[in-house]
Amino acid sequence: MDNAAQGKPVYKRILLKLSGEALMGDDAFGINRQVLQHMIEEIRSVLDLGVQIGIVVGGGNIFRGVALGATGMDRATGDYMGMLATVMNAMALQDCCRNNGIEARVQSALHIEQVAEPYIRGKALRHLRLGRVVIFAAGTGNPFMTTDTTAALRGAEVGADIVLKATKVDGIYTADPKKDPTATMYDEITFDHALRTNLKVMDATAFALCREQGLPIKVFNINKKGALRRVVLGEKEGTLVHS
């Protein structure tokens, strides 16, 4: 009998990458409470399996709302503003977790002790072992680095078994399925293939870091009910990127 049939997870510790845009739902910007609640329910379904969860969240839903006014701004300044947006999203996730009886901690790469713990690897590992959700905010704390790269970095640092990239599409396709009706979805591809064909699902730095660390990536649709649980149980869901 396989793990899925037995309800046994194939991963003990995961790093979930949530984009800021995923929190918007159909709204133009900001955080949609119904979407947020759906994500917390997905997270709970995996916690109930005994899986340890770290989360890296983006900030596009907030920062892109003010980006028009940031035209001509210094890149580093804009990146720091984006990091602050991720802290806001992380706080919203933490609050929704707690309202649903889930223990969660926000760890920020920027020092904002009034609202979040500083990122300390040892404390993050302890929280994970105690069954708490750890939400990593403010990216790596450095400009010119994406939250995809942060997900790869934090995933490697905390010893995650896999990075789960939550998107609005079912996986990685041969072409943009919205533009090309003949596009087909990959069940799995290699890091070399992803880098060679310049797939835009994650940035090249994140792909390269995961390849170097032997850390697989699964791209899946977080909006499909039960998708996160199916991924963790090893069922057919999304696209696997591996060495």
Rank of each mutant, 00 (worst) to 15 (best):
A4H: 05
A4N: 01
A4C: 09
A5Q: 08
Q6P: 00
Q6N: 12
Q6I: 04
G7P: 01
P9W: 13
P9C: 07
K12L: 01
L15V: 01
S19I: 05
S19Q: 06
A22L: 14
L23N: 03
G25A: 10
G25M: 09
D26K: 15
D26S: 14
D26Q: 12
D26F: 02
I31H: 03
I31P: 00
Q34R: 13
Q37S: 14
V46Y: 09
G50P: 00
V51W: 11
I53A: 12
I53G: 10
G54S: 12
I55Y: 08
G59R: 07
I62R: 06
I62N: 01
F63N: 06
G65P: 01
L68R: 14
L68D: 13
G69Q: 14
T71V: 13
R75H: 14
A76R: 13
T77D: 11
Y80W: 12
M83W: 12
L84A: 06
Q94F: 07
D95S: 13
C97H: 07
R98Y: 08
I102K: 08
A104N: 04
V106T: 13
Q107R: 11
Q107I: 03
I112S: 04
E113P: 14
E113I: 03
A116M: 10
A116L: 09
A116W: 09
A116G: 04
E117Q: 11
Y119E: 02
G122H: 11
K123R: 15
K123L: 13
R129G: 03
R132A: 14
V133S: 06
I135Y: 12
A137W: 12
A138D: 04
A138Q: 03
A138L: 02
G139T: 06
T140Q: 04
T140Y: 09
N142I: 01
N142K: 10
P143V: 04
P143A: 03
T146C: 08
T149Q: 09
T149R: 03
T150M: 05
A151I: 05
L153K: 05
L153M: 14
E157C: 06
V158W: 05
A160V: 02
D161S: 03
K165N: 15
K168Q: 05
K168T: 06
G171A: 05
G171R: 05
I172Q: 03
Y173I: 02
Y173G: 01
T174P: 02
A175K: 15
P177Q: 12
P181A: 12
A183G: 03
D187H: 15
D187F: 05
E188G: 02
E188R: 15
E188F: 10
T190L: 11
F191R: 04
H193P: 00
A194G: 01
N198I: 00
L199P: 00
K200V: 00
K200C: 00
D203N: 07
A204F: 11
A208T: 13
A208V: 04
L209M: 15
L209V: 03
P216I: 03
I217V: 15
F220M: 14
F220C: 05
F220W: 10
N221G: 02
N223F: 15
K225F: 09
K225Y: 12
A227K: 09
L228M: 15
V232R: 04
L233Q: 06
L233M: 10
E235H: 08
E237L: 02
G238L: 09
T239L: 09
L240I: 13
V241W: 05
H242W: 14
